[in-house]
């Protein structure tokens, strides 16, 4: 019973904060609600027994991605009333995208209902959660069966990172840079002195 209660708390907070993300007037509040939504999603993962994914969600999304996001939003001076002008103009596209997603979600759930063998086919590669911890299960899959896919996704991220750096990197002319090794290596201007306690130099 407690588990069900906890589930509803997490689920309702997640949905509620999701709604607040798009309806909050202040963009910073939106981002904070987004973080709350992430956090509740992590709670739902814990309830599912996927504690590794839950912690990863918090470490990666809450701990790093959302921080930078919040960082940027806080520094922008966004005028919300200006943003809301022409809001309805995008309504048809939004309805179409939302409608497609809703239909797909229904199809997935209906798939379980109409073709029960599908779920057994999907669930085959993972071991039972009672036998091994899910960190171990994930590691065994990622580093054995899907190692090439794993490496490929790593390469995609690397390319994206290098791309971002080359796009934003600029040589600054005239800025003075500190060369710490050079500074420490100087001899003539540094003097070591042994100071007697209570007497000073």
């Amino acid at each position: 019973m407690i588990e069900a209660l906890v589930f509803y708390v997490f689920a309702l907070t997640a949905v509620g904060s999701g709604v607040m993300v798009i309806s909050a007037k202040n963009p910073v509040h939106s981002v904070l609600f987004l973080i709350l939504a992430f956090f509740n999603a992590a709670g739902l993962f814990v309830l599912l027994g996927a504690e590794f994914l839950a912690m990863l969600l918090v470490v990666v999304y809450v701990g790093a991605v959302a921080v930078l996001f919040l960082f940027v939003v806080m520094m922008l001076d966004i005028n919300t009333t200006e943003l809301r002008q022409g809001f309805l103009q995008y309504l048809p596209i939004g309805v179409v995208v939302g409608g497609i997603m809703a239909v797909e979600l229904v199809l997935i759930t209906a798939g379980w209902y109409f073709a029960p063998y599908v779920s057994s086919a999907i669930g085959a590669p993972t071991p039972q959660p009672e036998q091994v911890s899910n960190t171990l299960a994930l590691g065994e899959l990622i580093y054995t069966r899907f190692v090439y896919l794993f490496q490929a996704s790593g390469l995609v991220l690397l390319v994206a990172m290098i791309g971002a750096i080359t796009l934003t990197h600029r040589k600054r002319v005239g800025s003075k840079k500190q060369n710490i090794a050079k500074q420490i290596a100087r001899e003539d201007s540094v003097e070591l002195k042994k100071v007697e306690p209570g007497r000073g130099i």
């Binding site: 904070l32 912690m55 809450v62 790093a64 921080v67 960082f71 960190t135």
Partner: peptide
């Protein structure tokens, strides 16, 4: 005594930045 204790610690210490940012 959870399985992913160290990740939990890492996650919580990473969230500490929000108090300061807010």
């Amino acid at each position: 005594d959870i399985n992913v204790g160290i990740l939990y610690l890492f996650a919580i210490s990473g969230m500490g930045v929000y108090g300061i940012l807010m």
